[in-house]
Design a protein around this nucleic acid. Structure first.
Lengths: 245, 245
DNA sequence: CGGCTGCTTGAAATGAGTCAACATAGGTGG
DNA sequence: CCACCTATGTTGACTCATTTCAAGCAGCCG
């Protein structure tokens, strides 16, 4: 075993910002565990725009962590219609629907050039027995995923178009900030069509709303480029406290 | 330890139809494990209509299995608005959002008189180490939960009112059937308002749709009592293959 | 440079929501 | 046991947010 290669620092560097791995690092692994973890994390994959990471109906036995770039997940209905389930930024996890080592019920596709960590469930389960904290960490991840989905159900069922888009932008902004990027200026990697699909809106509606937000000086937007000019106002719109003209 | 009390048969009887427990039973437990499992399952609770099982913001450290009766889960937004996340029938699990032993992000309330199994996460985790199959079973449960939420996202985002209600009825029907009840005749335990809230519709719309389904001889309905007269037609409506007048 | 894809904007159509009145069931108390 | 009261459900008329259809525009890639 190469002691140089297998150490906290290199591990941390190799999967920086990955919530799962980062948090299990300080929990007292021996060299053998570290080596296993290292093996897991090293399994990276470069994917190009529109390339599949995993596919609905396929049994991958992995969950995935985004290291760079961005990813969307979506289900395809019998009639071929697609529903986007989420957008995933660096450090975020996807593919938890295949946690039981059975087939995935959704697909993951790169929105731009991206690097992906593949985390085989089997290996993680073995490590979970050795590292008490990891099990807990995994459960946290899952709970958060479920809670996120529930928030999304509320958004889709009870909010109007304005609130949906404002909430979406605030959410993105917060996630960029958490990852060390600017909270106020960022590039969307997804199309208007994707945003609309995700939020249950027509893409024309998304376009119109962006224009309306611009007219009200709440954001500035030029194609993919978004600047949040008035964060508080945007929150107000998201909460439905103010409606725009 | 009471050998009489702790055996497969009594355990199975005591938590019949509970997907989690039922499936972990045949997996080779020793008497001590059995005793632990028995202790877990024995912790039952009788709740009356509108009584809370667990509450949003509370840290219960449990997941819950419905033994009899029915339950709804819902989140409450900052502004007090509620969004129903699911209805839970006997044998089904709820409260997975609190799996990480942290606070629940939703509340569970009985829709009628119900019996609930409380399953402490901590105990389950201990058992998971002893019983390899249980861990897998738990992960399956979680994956299914996530997949169910994703199906719901698709329903809310992309389907019209007719499709939503038809899908809801077919889903209920299938779950009743799976539990040994009639697939074609059942009583709703939730109000029109609850159904509407769950599906992102006004309760008047739910009422109107039920009438429309009745007019088209697809179902018969009288208040809470529902009979599915033409299952295929109902599926057709759910899939959007036919629209009703 | 040309064609393609994604975005924007307008005008018209519509599905579902809102408001309102009424009906019915079930529960409560006299 | 009946009468009333309140919850819940039904139905109608009208409104309006969002979709749909359609046309034009702007970046971008080969």
């Amino acid at each position: 075993m190469n002691e140089q290669k297998v150490n906290f620092k290199s591990l941390k560097a190799s999967c920086q910002n990955c919530s799962l791995i980062e948090l299990c690092l300080p929990r007292g692994l021996n060299n053998s565990d570290l080596s296993t973890l290292d093996d897991i994390i090293q399994q990276r994959r470069l994917v190009h725009k529109n390339e599949n990471i995993f596919s609905q109906g396929e049994k991958s036995g992995c969950i995935y962590a985004v290291r760079s770039g961005s990813v969307k997940t979506f289900t395809t209905a019998k009639n071929g219609e697609e529903q986007i389930l989420g957008f995933h930024l660096p450090g975020e996890i996807l593919g938890l629907d295949g946690m039981d080592n059975q087939i995935h019920s959704c697909s993951g596709v790169a929105l731009d050039t991206a690097t992906i960590c593949e985390l085989p469930i089997g290996d993680l389960n073995v490590l979970c027995v050795k590292i008490p904290g990891l099990q807990q960490q995994l459960l946290s991840l899952i709970s958060n995923e479920i809670t996120k989905d529930h928030t999304m159900l509320m958004l889709l069922a009870r909010r109007n178009a304005e609130q949906k888009l404002a909430t979406f932008l605030i959410n993105l902004s917060g996630r960029f900030k958490a990852r060390g990027y600017s909270a106020d200026e960022f590039d969307l990697t997804m199309s208007r069509y994707d945003i609309g699909n995700y939020l249950g809106l027509a893409d024309e509606t998304v376009s119109r709303l962006i224009s309306r937000f611009k007219d009200n000086k709440i954001i500035d937007a030029n194609r993919k480029k978004i600047s949040i000019l008035d964060h508080d106002a945007l929150c107000g719109v998201a909460e439905g406290e103010q409606s725009l003209n």
